[in-house]
């Protein structure tokens, strides 16, 4: 669980830096991709749950 949280912090940190690099307008375009990355990461949590 803690590893998952640490991974989430890394992912969001990378996304924050990417967002700053891209700038305001391009960030709007890349937002679906960023959300997809978060979605895929959250799916990993479900596989970590006991019984799955």
């Amino acid at each position: 669980m803690w590893e998952w949280i640490a991974g989430l912090i890394w992912l969001m940190g990378i996304l924050a830096v990417t967002g700053a690099v891209l700038g305001q307008d391009e960030r709007e375009n890349f937002m679906p991709l960023m959300r997809l990355a978060v979605l895929l990461y959250i799916l990993r949590l479900i596989s970590l749950l006991p019984g799955s």
Binding site: L8, M12, G13, L15, R27, M34
Partner: peptide, 20 residues
């Protein structure tokens, strides 16, 4: 206690990337 720490972290992350 773990849930509270997670709550801190999630609050922080949602401020860091407000779009997510």
């Amino acid at each position: 206690v773990p849930l509270l720490i997670v709550s801190f972290i999630l609050d922080y992350l949602s401020r860091l990337v407000p779009e997510i």
